[in-house]
């Protein structure tokens, strides 16, 4: 397991170096040192074996995220360009069912890119968010995002 984690992470960092150096070959001496250091730091800071993120839910989450950030951008652009802005801002509170740590942080951060929502405060499981238009079904969309993140971390149903 450790060997696999080592190999896949080293390959990932090598790919990253290849991208950063735009495919040039003359920087690989420094790049090799960088890849080795990054792999070591990564194995040290995030040891393999801990419950990771699985591939299928990750792809579904990314699809959901990209589609909704597209919707969010289009929606807010329409609101901004409307001759008479028609905003009904409000603060909402939601009780999160996500486990503490990375899952909640991801939720809080992605909310700012979803249609009509912006994370304002997170106190334990109580999330406060600002919404642009309280007439839109923002709470349901936040719940959908929460469900995706829960599956991503293998936390809930």
């Amino acid at each position: 397991m450790t060997v696999r984690a080592f190999a896949s992470r080293a390959a990932g960092f090598a790919l990253l170096w290849w991208v950063l150096s735009e495919g040039r070959l003359d920087g690989w001496l420094l790049g090799g040192v960088g890849v080795a250091a990054a792999t070591w730091a990564s194995l040290r800071l995030a040891p393999p074996g801990a419950r990771g993120v699985r591939a299928a839910p990750l792809l579904r989450f990314l699809g959901f995220f990209i589609w909704n950030s597209l919707r969010g951008g289009v929606q807010v652009a329409c609101m901004a360009l409307r001759p008479r802005p028609d905003l009904v801002p409000a603060l909402l509170e939601l009780e999160l069912a996500l486990p503490p740590g990375a899952a909640r942080v991801l939720m809080l951060n992605t909310l700012g890119l979803m249609p009509g929502t912006l994370g304002v405060d997170l106190d334990h499981a109580r999330l406060r968010l600002h919404v642009l238009d309280a007439r839109l079904p923002v709470a349901a969309e936040a719940r959908a995002l929460e469900a995706h993140i829960a599956r991503l971390f293998g936390a809930a149903p």
Binding site: G72, G73, V76, A80, G112, L113, G116, L118, H130
Partner: peptide
């Protein structure tokens, strides 16, 4: 809202 979503 406007900056984060539209600019991204």
């Amino acid at each position: 809202h406007a900056l984060a979503k539209a600019d991204n």
